[in-house]
Design a protein around this nucleic acid. Structure first.
Lengths: 239, 239
DNA sequence: TAGTATTGTAGTCAAATATACTATAAGTTA
DNA sequence: TAACTTATAGTATATTTGACTACAATACTA
């Protein structure tokens, strides 16, 4: 690991405390068949070869951290527009075995049904894991993952971000199952319907789901514009 | 700004993208006479001489980010135990005029009445500002400050952290005024009393305030142990 | 084609909570 | 002692939540 560096102007070696290696690591959440999933990658080389971890990368000199995260995700998944939010920085001096590396954790929510996320992966393998399938990850990635889940559980109740895990068009039951899974709670169907419809946040698409072996449910979509108008009027999303 | 560095093993100059200068900046909140305040420092030297900004410092090679933040605050204020939480990392490539510096923002809540916070400041001057007194700060510190205020407003409603801004012993009116100030809302006295007392979170100290020119109010304190017991039973703090 | 299973959707009712008040007590100050 | 300020108790109404019942619509299957 790098420990000394050169000051460009003076040419002298500068104290090592100023500089740090810094990376991005991203928790990519998906939702499939009622289960919350996370996308992990297998490391193809280096000391952690064969182990699984969060997808990540370096921050370039001329890009913002958010841009770096977007770029890394775009390279990995091919998806341009996804929900992406910074979690926090993780910087235990021993988190990376070969030296001091600070990482900035992000989490992303993607509409798994609408994309083939693994398209962008090349050398290393990538795989979806349900939360209880996740075992030992490299470095402190288990900590980052559990922190992000905790964070997601808070955020999902305060802001309408859960929709980013569902297809563009969804049924009320799908949202409810999403909340049940993410928050690990049981919800009452009629009560949940009433609560979410009363917000007047969802657009009734006047369509019904197809190819289901039961009575087809109405399809809705989430409209960010409507949400903005509501919040401007003082509306506060809460589940 | 430093742009190249040496790999210790090979002795070669390594690509510059890997390393970054990284700092801590801390928003220190206080509460005095019904007003939320923030502690700013005047820069005594360098390109930002004479300007005001958030207190900050470098992260050392062998300390965690949290420890760095604690150390920086301890050096500045002399206070060991204060409420300190990481906000997020700020990394716009242009945020620092002389080169790429990523900063990790923290915010702290201190019991202003119980300490003389400015004791630790030496060279540079330090001063408390109410939120509306804050003008142009250096770099992106206005952004960090406004982000931290937004974050505080969310957190203060979800967790009993507001008490960290009050003296050890406080009255119900003091808490209420704190919430009114931080959240910028009006509250009803009897209703607020009932709500907070019903939580059974506060310890009645069987004491009354002194030297007040009106009927003295009962004093209470916040007990983290009680809060822990309540949360273990499923209690959820919410204002 | 009748029956059964599954999910969607509407409605009811009591309990809990929030909100807007009024009233009074206990002090301080003039 | 009167006027004033703040603490504290209480009340009445609206709103929300939670548990539950009922029934409609559709698909499958015997």
């Amino acid at each position: 690991m790098v420990k000394k560096f050169i000051d460009e102007e003076s040419g002298k070696v500068v104290e090592e405390k100023v500089m740090n290696a810094i990376t991005i690591d991203c928790v990519i959440f998906g939702f499939d068949q009622g289960k919350l999933e996370v996308l992990l990658v297998e490391h193809g080389s280096g000391i952690s070869k064969g182990k699984w971890g969060l997808p990540g990368g370096w921050i370039k000199e001329d890009e913002s951290i958010d841009n770096a995260a977007h770029r890394v995700l775009q390279e990995l998944t091919g998806i341009e527009d996804l929900y992406l939010e910074q979690l926090k920085a993780f910087g235990d001096p021993k988190r990376f075995p070969l030296g001091r590396v600070i990482t900035i954790g992000y989490y992303a929510l993607i509409k798994k049904a609408d994309y083939d996320v693994k398209a962008g992966f090349t050398a290393s393998d990538a795989k979806w894991y349900t939360m209880d399938q996740v075992k030992d990850l490299i470095y402190d990635h288990n900590e980052i993952l559990s922190y992000s889940l905790k964070h997601l559980r808070n955020r999902v109740r305060q802001a309408p971000i859960g929709f980013n895990l569902l297809p563009e068009k969804f049924t009320l039951l799908q949202i409810m199952q999403l909340y049940q899974e993410v928050l690990n709670i049981e919800l009452d169907k009629p009560n949940f319907r009433r609560k979410i419809l009363k917000m007047k946040l969802l657009v009734d698409l006047k369509e019904k789901e197809k190819n289901v072996s039961h009575r087809a449910a109405k399809l809705y979509k989430f409209d960010p514009e409507i949400y903005k108008q509501l919040t401007d009027k003082g509306f506060n999303f809460e589940i």
